[in-house]
Every structure is written in C-alpha cells, then in structure tokens.
C-alpha cells in the first residue's frame, strides 16, 4: 500500500470492547493444565476464545501432544471432533496454513483446540495413529488446501475428483472456479459415445 496518498488519518487505537474482552477471557481448563505440566515445552502460545483454550503447538510435537491429551487420565480427550485446515494468507501471511484440531472429552465435558502452523508445501505429522477418525479429515484438508500429512495411510483426494489439479478452499481459488473447471466432467468422447446398444 502506498503511504503517501493515504489521506485518511490513522484511526486512534480502539478502546477495548467489553464484549470482546469477555470473549477472550481465559477459562479454566484441566486438560490444558495437565498438558502444561507434562509437555510445557511443546506449547508455543495459548489464547482463549469463547471459553475454549486455543493452544498453538510446534509442528513436530503435535502427535506427542495429541497422544498425551487422549491418553492422560486427567484430560481424556477421547473424541477428535474435528480437524480442518485454514488458509491464513489474509490474516498473517506466513506460514500460510493452520491445521486446527478440535478435541472433546466426552466424560470430562471439556474442549480444547490445538493449532499447528505449516507453510505451503510443508508436511504435518498425521494424527491417524492417535485417532483413527482423523483419516478422512486429513484427506479433506489435503484435498481442500494441499496440506500434506506425513504418515497418513491413504492420502488421496476425498471430495474433489482425483484428477483435479487445484485446492479449492485456498483463498486464491476463485469462488466460481477457474475457466477450465467449467464442464470438468465432460470429455470429448462423450459427444459421440452411444452406450448400451449395438
């Protein structure tokens, strides 16, 4: 952006909004405490939003942290509720992607969110050895963002056709698709093919 032509004055720093304050208020979390005790060095940052701790974890430590949260008697995050990618290009630039893990403890009734940052073309260790259910989620993240998962048993596209060559949930992929994606399923031989009959 060109600073010289910028006529609008720089807005004064915003006063903290009470609602926003409340949203960001830390909430007690036993799972997070346990994690801090055992694997404190793996935690890079902790934030809170809507009462759920959001823990940023080093990329190579994610499997270790995940296994601890699942197996530790204090946290018991048995359910990997969701795993998804986020294209962070519009929020922070690099590294480009976040992989977000939403964990739930069905009997502790707690939730925790883990985040791992990964640059374009980078690999994240797969958590399929910890939760089998991560399999399709990771395939979807690969399909939609092109994030690779190291050690995934079957990393193929899941929703898009296998011969598709882009990752549609990236921010640089247009909403209506590219020109060449229109009529993706039509093939030249379809025009002349007459099936079923002699």
């Amino acid at each position: 952006m060109d600073d010289v032509d910028n006529k609008t004055p720089i807005p004064p720093p915003k006063k903290a909004d009470p609602v926003e304050e409340a949203l960001r208020a830390p909430a007690p979390s036993r799972a997070l405490d346990r994690l801090g005790e055992a694997l404190g060095d793996a935690i890079e940052d902790v934030a809170y939003h809507c009462g759920v701790p959001i823990v940023r974890v080093g990329r190579d430590r994610i499997v270790e942290v995940a296994r601890f949260l699942k197996e530790d008697s204090g946290s018991r995050m048995l359910l990997l509720a969701d795993l998804c990618g986020v294209d962070m290009i519009g929020l922070r630039g690099a590294p480009r992607f976040d992989v977000v893990y939403h964990l739930t403890g069905p009997d502790t009734r707690e939730r925790i969110t883990l985040k791992v940052a990964v640059e374009e073309g980078g690999e994240v260790p797969s958590v399929t050895p910890v939760w089998r259910g991560a399999n399709w989620h990771e395939r979807e993240a690969f399909d939609m963002f092109g994030i690779r998962f190291a050690g995934h048993p079957d990393l193929r596209r899941i929703l898009m056709p296998e011969e598709f060559d882009a990752h549609p949930l990236r921010k640089d992929f247009p909403l209506e698709g590219r020109e060449k994606d229109h009529g993706f399923w039509r093939r030249p031989e379809d025009e002349t093919r007459n099936t079923y009959r002699d």
């Binding site: 909004d17 809507c50 509720a81």
Partner: peptide, 18 residues
C-alpha cells in the same frame, strides 16, 4: 463479529453438528 474464532457444536439428529 470481532476478530476471533469459535467452534460450536450442538446435538443434531445424526450426531455432533459442528
């Protein structure tokens, strides 16, 4: 909404809708 994020679930007929 202010900057931030939320993961919200409820109990759908088929399971946890998030």
């Amino acid at each position: 909404p202010p900057k931030g994020e939320v993961y919200h679930v409820n109990e759908g007929p088929r399971g946890e809708l998030g």
